[in-house]
Write a protein that binds this DNA or RNA. Structure first.
Lengths: 191, 191
DNA sequence: AGAGTAATCTAGTCAGTGTCAAGATAGATG
DNA sequence: CATCTATCTTGACACTGACTAGATTACTCT
């Protein structure tokens, strides 16, 4: 036991995964470093060694989240070339990574000035902007920025409402399909 | 001091207001009942007497929030009759009552089966639905439910992004005006 | 290979928190 | 006035985040 617990090798990874489980279960507010340590089978102060403190851990979660989001968006853009599908991918990310999503847009939980974080956030922002850029350049449309923000707001709001269980019943069980139906109100003539 | 602290008369009200301040400052996660007690000048266990526990306090905050939201929506509907302005009122509520908004859509923080809460939530839901109903019944539009959900998602997402500080700079300083620009992408021809 | 160094984790401690139980105080009711 | 009830206080307990010092392991350098 003593030889296995010392130099756990990838404790940060293990702890982040435990944190993701815990957050998905009961939200970031109920997160306990000591509980994570117990789940990982290490001492109560081990997590703090790697992440400094709770905010440090959540910063790492947010960084990972923005990276995964950026990946999901560029992947959707590459595969389909359709900005509606980029929006659907945004919702897909939120539903498949609820813990990441729950942290990413709650800046009071982590260090917003962490260099890794600002980089990841910028990358996600660019991916998102490129995904909806074609939509904003349609000549008949309104102000480009407003159109892009409308698209972002719609998929972000749908994600948040879905995750919080606020949406009425009767929607498609698959969140992507539900999102496709809702998003196509904004992106008419693309499906 | 002893005569003034006993029978504070409206301690629940005082504590809820203190909670709203605290939440607006640093989010619901950092909320401390003992801190609220200190702000109100009472003993550390006084809040629990009225609200049972932390979740009980946040339930009360959520109830108040849904009532205020319902009021804001029906007021906008009554005054303008325009569903775009109902959406703008949704954003206005979120920005003017950030603490309420931060709690309302985080069900893991409060008692979702509290009877007062379900009533207030239902009232807000009806107000919202009536506000966007005209939009959903436009014959050329898509599935009514999808249109209503798109409208809700858009204003909800814009509110969440605005409150989290995720939106890019360069927007109108007045959130209502910014929301009007963004929402009019979805509601064309109404402004 | 062996010593020294750095990284990783443990153990102990402290202030702060939520929650519970029991007691004190004050207004209301008979 | 006596009693009752709601309101608030006091004290306690387990839990948490954070800090410090120490133990253990891996890595490096000659």
């Amino acid at each position: 036991m003593s030889t296995s617990s010392y130099h756990h090798k990838n404790l940060p990874h293990t702890i982040i995964n435990a944190a993701l489980d815990a957050i998905a279960e009961s939200g970031p507010s109920a997160l306990s470093l000591r509980d994570l340590a117990r789940r990982a089978g290490v001492s109560h102060a081990a997590p703090a060694h790697h992440f400094g403190d709770k905010a440090g851990l959540l910063t790492a979660v947010a960084v990972q989240g923005f990276c995964l989001l950026a990946d999901a968006l560029v992947e959707a853009q590459r595969r389909t070339g359709d900005f509606l599908e980029v929006g659907v991918a945004y919702v897909g990310f939120a539903v498949e990574h609820p813990a990441h999503f729950a942290v990413m847009f709650r800046p009071e939980l982590y260090r917003t000035n962490d260099p890794e974080l600002v980089a990841a956030k910028a990358r996600a922002g660019e991916s998102l902007y490129r995904g909806v850029a074609p939509f904003t350049s349609s000549e008949s449309g309104p102000v480009p920025q407003d159109a892009a923000l409308a698209a972002w707001s719609l998929v972000h709001g749908f994600s948040a409402l879905w995750l919080s269980g606020s949406l009425p019943p009767g929607l498609p069980a698959d969140p992507r399909q539900a999102a496709r139906g809702v998003a196509s109100v904004l992106f008419p003539g693309t499906q």
